[in-house]
Amino acid sequence: MLAAAPVPSVFNGTAEVLAMVVLLATFAMFRTQLLRAQVKLYAVQSLFVSGLALAAAVTRGESELYVLAVVSAAVKVVAIPAVMRRLLDRIDGSLAGHEAFSVTTAVLVGIAVAAFGFFAVGALEVRTALLPRAALAIGVAVILESFLLMIARTDVPSQAIGFFSLENGVSIAGLVVATGMPLLLELLFLFDLLVAVVAFGVMMRTLHLRSATVSARGLERLRG
């Protein structure tokens, strides 16, 4: 007879739900056409990542984790979305992203990719101290989904959002496997992200100045 699946504790269940919302936000980015709505989704996603950090902080009682939760919320929920919005303001005329294939196809491929991520992590014997192991699997799935998002979209703003949400997946995985990682290292990651924002911003603007579009399609043509 089939045995009932074990029940996670209330804390583990909640942590898994928080991580799952982050994954669902990545899937929602596939479905969202408007670039501004994508930025908003990214802010929501980051909020839940910070929430996960806060949950870890509360159970562990480490001040470093509190600092991390606050700083990551300030950077990823407030600062980066604000910068992205300003960048989008300057690029008038392009409100919606471009898709390489249809939303339904993207979601179905996304399910397969997420399943791969889940089982790949399930095969690893990773022991985790604080957050449940399922959260690690979900984090890896977020990373893979973000890759897929960057492939499925051909415009630079969507690809930038995909890259940022990839960093959110890395944050979740980092929280699970290395909760006690030195704060300095985590902060470095965040500043890395700021560099990426600047790089994507420059790319968006140059592309827009040169070809009056943010679609990366124009970069595929060779010019002699």
């Binding site: 699946a5 994954l23 669902l24 979601v107 399910i111 997420a114 399930g122 399922a134 979900i138």
Partner: peptide, 18 residues
């Protein structure tokens, strides 16, 4: 497809052992 995604994720999460 969105509904299918939620349902499949529910089963996948269970298969993770958690």
């Amino acid at each position: 497809a969105a509904g299918f995604l939620l349902a499949v994720l529910a089963v996948l999460v269970l298969f993770l052992g958690a």
